[in-house]
């Protein structure tokens, strides 16, 4: 059931869609994605840390985004590194499919 859901490119949540949209023209790291979403929506739509990173992992598993470690020096105390995310061809395709689907839905005439 869940694998079927994962394979469906139309099955994108609002958060997943927003994240993919932020990555269309440039690669970004987690906090940058969060800030971009908040800024674009003028603070009306925010995405928390606890939903951003698991969602990014899911998108990576589905092949919609790829990631690479940043060249910056790791965080002073913890040694944690920054990771940059980039949209893949599949990700772009999924966004386009979703948009097409929504556009078709808008103009759909009742058949009977």
């Amino acid at each position: 059931m869940s694998s079927k859901k994962q394979d469906d490119p139309l099955d994108l949540t609002l958060n997943e869609e927003a994240i993919l949209h932020t990555l269309i023209f440039r690669e970004r790291y987690g906090l940058e994605i969060m800030n971009a979403i908040a800024e674009a929506s003028k603070g009306k739509k925010t995405i928390g840390f606890s939903s951003l990173y698991p969602t990014l992992r899911k998108l990576e598993k589905r092949g919609f985004v790829t990631s690479r470690w940043g060249d910056e020096t790791p965080e002073e105390t913890t040694g944690a590194r920054r990771r940059y995310y980039k949209i893949t061809g599949n990700g772009l395709q999924a966004v386009e499919n979703k948009q097409q689907f929504l556009a078709t839905l808008q103009h759909l005439q009742p058949s009977c």
């Binding site: 790291y29 987690g30 906090l31 969060m34 840390f49 951003l52 990173y53 992992r57 790791p74 965080e75 105390t77 913890t78 944690a80 590194r81 920054r82 990771r83």
Partner: peptide
């Protein structure tokens, strides 16, 4: 998998 999350919390 998740060290970038911790990195961004401190950032």
């Amino acid at each position: 998998e998740y060290q970038d999350w911790l990195h961004d919390i401190l950032l």
